[in-house]
Design a protein around this nucleic acid. Structure first.
Lengths: 286, 286
DNA sequence: GTTCCGCATGAATCGATAG
DNA sequence: ACTATCGATTCATGCGGAA
């Protein structure tokens, strides 16, 4: 079996129009923030942001499978000393479109942007909004389990004969909690707070999120050979993560330079090569 | 100089009516969440939450100094598989009242409530919304600087070391020295993500948030002999923190048991005793 | 005096059962 | 149908007693 990489050059709505409904398992994207990245994306004014995004989210709702998930990485910027409210307004409007606002994960940026302001600290977190089409969405929680806290190492590791005997006697006497559930277990389910460093490499593209971010959500919400999409592909981080994890990938990008860079990378880079390079070539549209 | 502790028994609006306008430097509070704590507080339905809180926030706006700050600790609960939207609606409505939504801090709860569900991870964060009356609010950033080695973790426990350093320097050289002169490059400013464990276990009073939380904001937004208020006092965590830091404290509580417990604690406990116990007694209003 | 370990306890959430 | 209550699940933390 092979995985495909499908790239579209054009704005998000153009690319989305070409995608069939109910076909995408996971959307992970970080759209251009309001008034940010002016030099690259042109920048959407904060008060126009919601009306700009709603037609796109409408299309995302169409192409997503009923069991699929949409992860939106976004953070409101500061305007005249206040946090803008367009993210909150967007959530309220998307619910009217039919989206379920299932959860809000927090991306804690361990090495956030440096700086000092008289009335504000450094911003070290961003929102990761989870939207779904139905309550019956797919989730593979075991795929993202994390090592337990220190206490399990310091305590359970030292479980010796005494504890085992005591446990046995408890079981025999019919009360006490079952310690055997914990023995040999060193993994726990994560929480809705993700601790990741930001991409600190001095790349020329407007760096979005580190590859661990889409990787985490791809593991959590898809299985192999599912399809992952990023309608604001940018430098292609989501698509690389999907490809490495053997998921089909769909990317849309409006800026030719970015589009060509990603296209070139999938041709030449030694990522997951399930097919020959020429087959990659045909898989890449445009 | 002494610090006062002013307690009101009654609901928040009743107590607030008795407080003069433009007199409070900082409000730190954690109101009852929607449909939460039904056994103690009435429990406000999610769809009634905004209209319940708006008259209170209107009064908070009145009593706060123009340079003051309002920190609101809140988190929306899950209803039928979705996060409720009343917190976002509350922010939008409070802005219409005249509040500035300056910032949203994240409280990362390291020891969040356990549990496992098929479609959701454990909730490990809460919102700490910062509202202001004007852009010219007061902020003492140096008071909450953290050691450089821990800056990324923003461990508040290390703040106690900071205080020791500062106190030592004060004793040795007099008051009012610039802290940065003494600490220099070893210290960094924190971010807008706070890492704190909730208080559980065998303490006398179980509080909604750990004392480090109000302590941090009190240091950040007030100086000694300023006035700190909590209109939903509960077990009095905010007031204890304020008192220990030599700030005047105002608390309002609707449940007599909580009110009396706090009142008793301030009478008998060996907190910051700037005056004799009898003077504390007179400072506590009925 | 330390260190180690047992234990209770959380602003939780879901699904099933009951009124 | 729609709401109220209850059990099951799960894990970091600090306290207190024990080694």
């Amino acid at each position: 079996m092979q995985v495909d990489v499908e790239l579209y050059l054009g704005d998000a709505r153009y690319g989305l129009n070409k995608i069939a409904g109910d076909t995408i398992d996971l959307i992970v994207t970080s759209p251009p923030y309001a008034d940010q990245r002016k030099n690259t994306y042109g920048g959407i004014a904060p008060d126009k942001y919601v009306e700009w995004f709603l037609p796109i989210s409408q299309e995302l709702l169409r192409v997503l499978k009923p069991t699929g998930t949409f992860i939106l990485n976004i953070k409101e910027r500061v305007v005249k000393g206040e946090r803008s409210t367009y993210v909150m307004e967007l959530i309220l409007e998307m619910r009217k479109q039919g989206w379920l606002w299932t959860e809000e994960f927090i991306w804690h940026k361990k090495n956030c942007y440096p700086g000092k302001w008289p009335n504000r600290f450094r911003d070290a977190w961003e929102r990761l909004l989870q939207f779904n089409k139905t309550k019956q969405f797919t989730m593979y929680q075991e795929a993202v389990m994390v090592p337990m806290g220190d206490w399990s190492k310091t305590r359970l590791k030292t479980l010796s004969d005494t504890d085992k005997i005591r446990d046995t006697s408890k079981v025999g006497s019919g009360f006490g909690k079952n310690i055997s559930n914990w023995i040999g277990r060193d993994m726990a389910y994560p929480t809705n707070v993700l601790h990741l460093a930001t991409e600190c490499g001095n790349k020329n593209h407007s760096a979005a999120f580190p590859e661990e971010l889409p990787t985490w959500f791809i593991k959590l919400f898809t299985k192999e050979y599912d399809t992952v999409m990023d309608p604001f592909m940018g430098s292609g981080t989501t698509l690389y993560a999907a490809n490495k994890l053997k998921r089909n990938a769909v990317g849309i990008e409006i800026i030719p330079d970015y589009y060509n860079a990603v296209k070139e990378a999938f041709k030449t880079t030694d990522l997951y090569l399930f097919e020959k390079e020429s087959e990659y070539d045909t898989a890449i549209n445009q």
